[in-house]
């Protein structure tokens, strides 16, 4: 985990009523209430694999 790199996270409300945690794929210009879309992005990699997870991509 070192050196530590800051990351952004958010709780996102879906139209179906569900609220879900996730990483936001950028650090800048974030605000409560902004729209995001669901995307898939790289979490980390080791010698064998690249690991992916769901993330939020802000729509400006």
């Amino acid at each position: 985990m070192e050196p530590f790199e800051p990351y952004a996270i958010g709780m996102v409300d879906f139209p179906e009523g569900l609220r879900i945690y996730g990483i936001i794929n950028r650090m800048e210009n974030l605000r409560i209430g902004m729209e995001v879309e669901t995307t898939v992005d790289k979490l980390y990699e080791d010698e064998e694999n690249e690991y992916i997870t769901w993330m939020w991509k802000p729509i400006d």
Binding site: M11, D13, G17, L18, R19, I20, Y21
Partner: peptide
Amino acid sequence: PTIPLTRLSAFP
């Protein structure tokens, strides 16, 4: 509306 620790989602 809170998501308690260990969970990933809530249904407010």
